[in-house]
Amino acid sequence: MSDADTLSHSLPAASAVEEEPSHPAYRHQFDDMAQQFEASHLGMWVFLITEIMFFGGLFGGYTIYRSLYHEAFADTSQYMNIVLGAFNTSVLIASSLTMALAVHAAQTGLQKPLVRFLLATMALGSVFLVIKYFEYSEKFHHHHFPGPNFHYEGPWARQAEILFSFYFVMTGMHALHMVVGIGLLSYLVWKASKRVFDATYYTPVEMIGLYWHFVDIVWIFLFPLLYLIGPHHMGGHS
């Protein structure tokens, strides 16, 4: 913290001419605040790429089983609640908007809108999780959770169990990321209420924003792949 200020005097003269980094968040190993931001930005993207590969493995496994048991996967879509799924998609898109507006407020140094938009993002994320809870309890109620109590009408019981395994793992991992995101946002609200962020330093807001948008993108793919598998005319035999 304070050693950054003292060490900044020993910076190379070249960088000191361009900009005098006196911000408390400045770390002395960087030339200036812009380079510090760029390093965090690139590091965050590397982390997000590992997340892409993690969810990519799940999407790849899903793709293979869907191509193997196409009729069975399409048959399960009669038990997917499209209304709740579409509503949750809209909730997440709205939360991405408030997150982008929070970053915008931080960039322009607006303290109160920053806190308000962060709180709105947390609220929308919580709405998503509450709706997800109702969807999960509906699935448990119908014995659609894979395991010894799994029950499924029709000839596709074993294959449908695979689909529901993917459903619970993928939406569960996504929901876990949402919970982590809401925790990170509460950290941001705490920091923002202490007016830590301004137009020259808002790196955590930007990074957690990137994370939040990434979680939104995962859901953008989960929604059509899990809820919109087959055309929704009931009957389930093709």
Partner: peptide
């Protein structure tokens, strides 16, 4: 979302390269 919300459109070329590499490996 990637180009506007995550602002990759105005990010550094290095960031763009990383994003493209991530998609390539996916």
């Amino acid at each position: 979302v990637v180009l506007i919300f995550m602002n990759v459109r105005f990010s550094s070329p290095l960031t763009k390269l990383f994003v493209a590499a991530g998609l390539f490996w996916l």
